[in-house]
Simulated scan of single mutants.
Amino acid sequence: MTVSLMVHEDFYSQSVASTVEYRVLMPPDGSRVDGLPLILHLHGAMSSSAFLDVAKPSYESAWTTGVLPPAIVACASTPTSGGFYIDYSDGPFWERLVGTELPEHLATQFALNESQAVLGFSMGGYGALKLAFRAPDRYRAVAALCPAIFPAESLDEVPAKNRPAILGELNHAMGAAPYGYSGNCVPTLLRQNIDVVRESALKILVDCGNKDEFALHDGSMYLHQLMLDLNIDHDWESLPNCGHADRGAERLAKALTFLGSALA
């Protein structure tokens, strides 16, 4: 029995002034159903929309068991260096692409309702939290798996151990206008929009392995403690003896169950 249908397309993006490739995963009859929710699936560093191929069995299982309602799942290919799901001063505008332009484009191709959720892994987890905290009333839920976030809220305060290699590039890129570092820093963005986050129905899930090779557990713990201090309801899981990409299928299954409860 066919459980899902994968569509591989591209479109010209005004936000990044180039053609962007993307994949859409949906139930086999999804294109004939009126008004499905949209799940934005954000890939990690050094990856592409092909990441959705890896996630496909988990979505199929979630649909088969009923923990996730039928949905349109979309993943766009975005770069790491020069990308990072950040809007740069004079472009390109990668956050705008995934958060605004891609959903608007998909609405012309598929029957969508008003419900949206966003899920991301690593760099994608950073992008997912940024989208959700910037516009919390737009999303039903956000799930960030080992998000690439830091245990500090300014460029110079991020410890050296938390910005190895590509994470150092991300730390510097976060200072890009028009938002500047504060507008690209997940914890600061939460502080700035705290009233809207509190008033929204946004459901938040964050997980990270306590053996994360890139020390991302520190940033996730920082965000977790901040949400506790700010009295923001959320689901948090520190995974014992778990590295950056360990237990990926299990963690994705939990995330899809979480999103499913919010979208049901």
Rank of each mutant, 00 (worst) to 15 (best):
T80M: 05
P187H: 04
S261H: 06
A201F: 03
A160Y: 04
V16D: 06
T65C: 10
A132Y: 01
P147Q: 10
P37N: 03
L259W: 00
V206F: 02
P69L: 05
C146Y: 13
V206D: 05
G168N: 06
C242N: 08
A177Y: 09
I39V: 14
L42T: 07
D137C: 13
G120N: 02
W63N: 01
F150W: 08
W236E: 01
Y85L: 06
P69T: 15
P187A: 07
L223I: 14
S122P: 09
P57L: 04
A253N: 07
L190R: 05
A107D: 15
L216C: 12
A215I: 11
E199D: 13
H224L: 10
F214I: 11
S115I: 01
K161T: 07
V33P: 11
P57S: 02
T188W: 08
E157A: 11
E104W: 13
R32S: 15
V196Q: 09
W94L: 12
K130H: 03
H172A: 07
H43S: 04
E199H: 09
L170F: 05
A264I: 00
I72S: 09
P187S: 03
A111M: 13
F11Y: 10
G175P: 04
A17D: 14
A74Q: 07
C242I: 03
V3R: 14
S220T: 07
C242F: 02
L216S: 04
P28W: 11
S47E: 07
R251L: 01
T65Y: 01
S49Y: 00
I194A: 10
L112R: 03
H105N: 14
L205W: 14
P103N: 12
T64H: 06
V197Q: 03
L119V: 07
S47K: 07
K203V: 07
D235A: 10
M227P: 15
L226H: 14
R138F: 06
E114D: 14
K130W: 01
E199V: 02
